[in-house]
């Protein structure tokens, strides 16, 4: 019961945050010197046409009404029309999101795998852990875009192991139902598509994963080491539990709290990394979309991407809270 209540509270908080984000985006749009009517109709439109368009867009109404309108649109998935593509922003986003989602998710998985390997190798003093750590730190200290460029020079140009751009090299790759090529390949019984998608993902996903991997790994390692010195571990040892049973049965659940928080924070940074890396690898995702929208001040498109990424960040951090509460019963009190 308390758990249901806890999740409900976090969900309510999430809605409030997204509303605040929408308000901020709306306010920015209003403050921008760019006139949407001008952007739509061009410089030569008549006064009458401009007034008609203003009315059609609802721009002659009070600002509160306009915001209400905007929110109502959001609820129905209407983010307005892009000035540039002349299509609804929602339609555009649906076309670009799967590529970015697949890249970000792969990056997160790689980051978590590396972080966990790094933390456990250091804690258990596995031979070679120091070398692994050094490599990871080195990678994390290089800016993401540079990492991408180095990767392309090494693995594409020099070795020819991995492709340098795009999501797939297969012309008739299946589309749908998920629009994630790794999954769609499996669903259509085309392992070649999945394998090809993985090869395309490997370099850009690793490039965005290294920084978060080090951050999460360090937090996890210090929690693991701290917890291993705690009194309840001494109790478990006195009971005659083995070190493996202690680590997996007792320590991990107590240690993941801080690492889960750090993961939530790093996801935000990772979104920024995704937008940059997509440029380097010609990845047809939100990064490309927003890079084309910013120079022409396509505000509805920029606002749409901002709201989407912001909401994703909020959802992930709400999930972080729920995972932490599941791990630590004291949080629910």
């Amino acid at each position: 019961m308390t758990q249901v209540r806890f999740v409900g509270q976090r969900f309510a908080a999430m809605v409030i945050i997204v509303l605040a984000l929408a308000a901020a985006v709306f306010a920015l749009q209003k403050m921008s010197p760019l006139d949407p009517v001008h952007a739509r109709l061009g410089g030569q439109a008549s006064q009458g046409a401009i007034a008609a368009e203003r009315h059609a867009l609802g721009l002659d109404k009070p600002i509160v009404t306009q915001f209400g309108h905007y929110l109502a649109g959001l609820v129905h998935g209407d983010l307005g029309d892009s000035y540039r593509t002349r299509r609804p922003v929602t339609t555009d986003l649906l076309a670009y999101v799967p590529a970015t989602a697949e890249l970000a998710a792969s990056g997160l998985i790689i980051a978590l795998v590396l972080a966990i390997a790094f933390a456990f190798a250091s804690t258990l003093r596995v031979p070679g852990a120091a070398l692994f750590r050094l490599g990871l730190m080195l990678g994390a200290s290089v800016p993401t875009f540079l990492l991408g460029v180095f990767g392309i020079l090494l693995f594409y140009q020099h070795f020819g192991w991995l492709p340098a751009s795009g999501r797939t090299s297969i012309g008739n790759a299946p589309t749908g139902p998920t629009h994630l090529l790794t999954l769609d390949g499996l669903l259509h019984g085309r392992p070649d598509v999945t394998w090809d998608a993985i090869k395309h993902l490997l370099m850009p996903a690793t490039a965005i994963a290294l920084g978060p991997a080090v951050a999460i790994g360090r937090v996890l390692r210090s929690s693991l080491e701290g917890e291993l010195g705690s009194d309840y571990v001494r109790t478990a040892r006195a009971k005659g539990r083995s070190e493996r049973q202690i680590l997996l049965g007792h320590v991990v659940r107590n240690a993941i709290g801080a690492a889960v928080s750090m993961t939530g924070l790093q996801v935000g940074l990772m979104f920024a990394g995704v937008l940059v890396v997509e440029q380097v690898f010609g990845w047809p995702g939100l990064g490309l979309y927003i890079a084309e929208s910013i120079p022409v001040a396509d505000f509805p498109a920029i606002a749409g991407v901002t709201l989407l990424l912001g909401s994703a960040y909020v959802v992930i951090n709400a999930a972080v809270d729920v995972i932490q509460a599941a791990a630590d019963p004291r949080i629910r009190v």
Binding site: D231, Y232, R234, T235, A238, K239, G240, H250, D328, P329
Partner: peptide, 19 residues
């Protein structure tokens, strides 16, 4: 330890696994 020993420590709050 399993066969012959048992232990009780000072602070029962920290000596028990909180989770």
């Amino acid at each position: 330890r399993i066969a012959h020993l048992g232990a009780v420590f000072q602070d029962p709050m920290t000596s028990l696994n909180p989770t």
